[in-house]
Amino acid sequence: MKKNTWVNLGFQVGALVLALLITTLILVAAGAPPLKAYLSILSGAFGSTRNVVAVLITWSPLLLTTAGVLITFAAGLWNIGMEGQMTLGAIFATGMLRLFEHAALPPALIIILGILAGILGGAIWAALAGALKTFGGVNEIFGGLGLNFVATALTIYLVFGPWKRPGVGSMSGTQPFDQALWLPTLPGTELSIWSLVISVLVIALVYLLLRGTHFGLRLKAVGKNSKAAFLMGVPTWQYSMFAFLLCGAFAGLAGGIQVMGIYHRLLPNISNGYGFLGLLVAMLINYQALWAAPIAFLFAALNTGSVQLQIIYKLDSSFAGVLQDLLVLLVLLGEGARQRFIKKN
């Protein structure tokens, strides 16, 4: 192995060990025995078929949002607006289901229409962020954040307004869909095999797109140096817009799956933070699509398994988030330190 490889490895492992050590210290400070706490996370995530299913349910939308941001990151864009795009996907999917709920159409067709509507909703919302950047000069971070707020406000309006449950005004959500319009799940579980298959296919598609296609190469060129790419004949703004559209479509798909497969209704918090979590996963894997699936799975397992920490040790449920954030922060810090070290030597 070359010297640089060992250096890289050292910094990465150091960051990971440091993250775990800090987490361990937090556990000790909270009065939880660290080893048992870690084991309880494992048990909470993999201790039973039901728990594994819960991990897979969380994994699926996370994989979709991660796939989306990998595209925009490749184009050099920070699509912070994933939450809003996911929300719009949920709104469009809900709208489609409500539209055809009582129509004489096969439920499967309505579900497919719902999924397509979700994709469309997310893409439209992402296109807005892209247009703000491309034609309005608004940084995509600010544009995305603003659109997130608008999406939330729109959901609240619908949940408390035209789509409210009869006689009810609550953020608990809209009237649940007819059971025939729920995404089919594995018997005895809430896991939709369709959402799982779609998510895996999407991440595989993104991997192939970024690694083995002319499009991917050009997209990366735009991301690395937009000016140079333009001079080389790449239509840069079109590529940026396409990256937004694709990312929004995946986020919208995730939103559609949330309403049709998990909650069976529209909620104000339907995005559940998956957009931001997808950003963390993408940063942790250094934007390499190959690692998206396992690391997203690790995050999903942490989210699911750490519920046990609250049950057993009365630790706050945000513990999983602390560990995830620490991992990302320290890996990024480690990467910065590594680059400085290599420059000096």
């Binding site: 918090n269 559940n272 049950i311």
Partner: peptide
């Protein structure tokens, strides 16, 4: 017990 359990609670992403 588990606390802060409500629809879309950020404490439990994706978990009903």
């Amino acid at each position: 017990y588990l606390e802060n359990v409500y629809s879309g609670s950020p404490a439990y992403p994706g978990q009903t």
